[in-house]
Nucleic acid binder design. Sequence first.
DNA 1: AATGATATACGAAAAGTTTCGTAAATGCAA
DNA 2: TTGCATTTACGAAACTTTTCGTATATCATT
Lengths: 130, 130
Amino acid sequence: MSKKSNLPQPTNAELEILQILWKAGPSTVRFVNEQLSEQQEKEIRYTTTLKLMQIMTEKKLLSRNTDTRTHVYLAEAVQGDTQKALLKKFVDATFQGSAMNLVMQALGNHETSQQELDEIKALIEKIEKG
Amino acid sequence: MSKKSNLPQPTNAELEILQILWKAGPSTVRFVNEQLSEQQEKEIRYTTTLKLMQIMTEKKLLSRNTDTRTHVYLAEAVQGDTQKALLKKFVDATFQGSAMNLVMQALGNHETSQQELDEIKALIEKIEKG
DNA sequence: AATGATATACGAAAAGTTTCGTAAATGCAA
DNA sequence: TTGCATTTACGAAACTTTTCGTATATCATT
């Protein structure tokens, strides 16, 4: 059985930082700040990123190694769990809780490749059997 | 060809009001306020709802008929378009733009009935043919 | 017409989120 | 060791969103 994480949901700015850490692994504030600035195509002050990551550490969304002067941050929030929680909230708010409605909308409005469709079909079969 | 609506995206509180209007059709502030209070299981001040709906009218998310003293509000934002826009933003922020990832997550984590699965399969077939 | 209930208008407080500036500490290089 | 660059700490400004209180208008009833 999986333990409940019970972490608070990240805000938008926090989620962006999580995405970077999920992708790159443990990183310094400077690195995260550079990634962010690159993504948004505008400079973000170093201390802005620092402050956010400190807040996130307080919330336990991140942890950090302070052995060296330059702290190294690690995502404590698990990507899958976080996505799942945010998705539920989003579905409730936007599709009145119907994941079905959302899926139809998602499939209908995005370019979906044949391979992706195959994957979905495979998943459906798995669900039908299981 | 469908005209671009170009409406601002609703905030969370605004979205809740839209949901009520989409479902119930043109309504008064009082009605919307009662629905909201019921949903959240706590009283929401009448003027809070009023203020929000006035702001939304200014943003063109709603329009209103002021012929009678009690104004009647109508959702101008179209449900499908709004959901689509919010979904895109959400997918970008949470699933790095991959609707596929989201669909897999949505199907995997929710109870999905056989009928719903059939609908999805039908949709996929339609996409594959079209 | 006076009273009371209910409506709108609207500024501003309250709450939440994001950004920034300054101070103090630390490490490195001359 | 002195000076410079970089880091962390942290309060607070700047914004956004949500909630509320007060003033005023309107309608129905008496």
